[in-house]
């Protein structure tokens, strides 16, 4: 296995006295795909936020590509190649489709190149092209997901953290979105998939980490769903 791209060591994090994550270790190899699973409220979202710098760990370190990134501001981490699609609505509802694409692309590549990449995104998702002037908030849940994915597809980050990708999406669209994720992977992007719904994530990840009540309950090779539901639903 290649050297880890992302490495969390002994990470604790929370909000005030609320300890969301306790002593979590997690590694994502370069180009690898790891699924972070667990029931609702287990701390998965907090781990994703710690990686992208939205939440600072109270203890432990996050290293990306061999450098410690915990403590850096979120935009600094984003510029190093970590993209984070947060849980729920992950587009700017009050900006148009085009502006949603332009915001990160212009920041990374300048206006001219951003325009080219935006056109590529429309070629990939014609539906977005049709709605380029529309406010992103008026798109359906599936289209909003397409929009956040289109951006990473045309400009693949080194690590993509996706939080609750399938939340609120019709099963057909979930399948479609996962196909796209597989494409991103082929482009060399490592994936950290945060999921409560395990089935699709299991199809793409080569290793999984299961959180329960903020602690790592299992880390290793994927488990069959019935064993997972034991981990999720049964007494721990």
């Amino acid at each position: 296995m290649s050297a880890p791209l992302l490495e969390l060591a002994g990470v604790h994090a929370g909000y005030g006295p609320f300890k969301a994550v306790v002593d979590v270790d997690l590694t994502v190899p370069a180009g690898g795909a790891v699924a972070l699973l667990g029931p609702n409220g287990a701390g998965k979202t907090t781990v994703a936020r710690v990686v992208s710098g939205l939440v600072r760990p109270t203890a432990g370190t996050v290293a990306f590509d061999g450098e410690v990134i915990s403590g850096l501001p979120a935009h600094e981490i984003a510029r190093r190649g970590v993209a984070h699609a947060p849980e729920g609505r992950s587009v700017f509802a009050t900006l148009s489709v085009e502006e949603n694409l332009a915001l990160p692309l212009r920041q990374a590549h300048g206006t001219a190149r951003a325009a080219e990449l935006t056109d590529q995104a429309y070629a990939m998702f014609p539906r977005l092209g049709e709605r380029r002037a529309q406010l992103a908030g008026s798109l359906s849940g599936g289209e909003q997901r397409q929009l956040s994915l289109a951006r990473v597809l045309v400009d693949p980050p080194r690590l993509l953290v996706v939080d609750e990708l399938s939340l609120g999406l019709a099963p057909v669209i979930i399948g479609e979105v996962y196909q796209r994720l597989a494409e991103i992977r082929r482009l060399g992007t490592a994936l950290l998939l945060v999921e409560q719904y395990v089935e699709h994530a299991l199809g793409i990840a080569e290793s999984i980490v299961v959180l329960r009540a903020g602690e790592v309950a299992y880390a290793g090779a994927p488990l069959p769903t019935d064993e997972l539901s034991q981990l999720f639903l049964a007494a721990g």
């Binding site: 399938s166 409560q196 719904y197 395990v198 769903t225 997972l228 539901s229 999720f232």
Partner: peptide
């Protein structure tokens, strides 16, 4: 219910 919780289809 298991489907809703696990997304198993």
């Amino acid at each position: 219910v298991r489907r809703a919780y696990l997304g198993v289809t």
